[in-house]
């Protein structure tokens, strides 16, 4: 298995903060699809007037172990309706 590189395009994907649920509730199909639960959302550095996050981004956790645990199934790429995720497998 080669090196896995996860590329996320924040411009195509839009995950707003939901004040009711206190987390993003829109989409999140990629993190549901990941069989190893390697993907997670985190707030971006932008802050609203009350200090709450404005927008979230998707990122890959445990990156140095991703070569070992990411099954390279590309399900995250498949389910993304905006085409915001790319996974590059080198070697």
């Amino acid at each position: 298995m080669g090196k896995v590189k996860f590329i996320y395009d924040g411009k195509k994907c839009f995950l707003p903060y939901d004040p009711e649920q206190r987390r993003p509730t829109r989409c999140l199909k990629c993190i549901e699809a990941c069989p190893k639960s390697l993907l997670m959302f985190r707030p971006t550095k932008e802050k609203g007037p009350d200090g709450s996050p404005v927008k979230y981004e998707i990122y890959m956790t445990f990156r140095s172990q991703a070569d070992k645990y990411c099954p390279s199934c590309l399900k995250c790429v498949e389910v993304c309706p905006e085409g915001a995720i790319q996974v590059k497998i080198q070697g």
Partner: peptide, 13 residues
């Protein structure tokens, strides 16, 4: 609170 916490969780991770 999960809305604020994930940033530090992602840093810890």
């Amino acid at each position: 609170d999960a809305a604020w916490y994930p940033l530090s969780i992602s840093k810890t991770l």
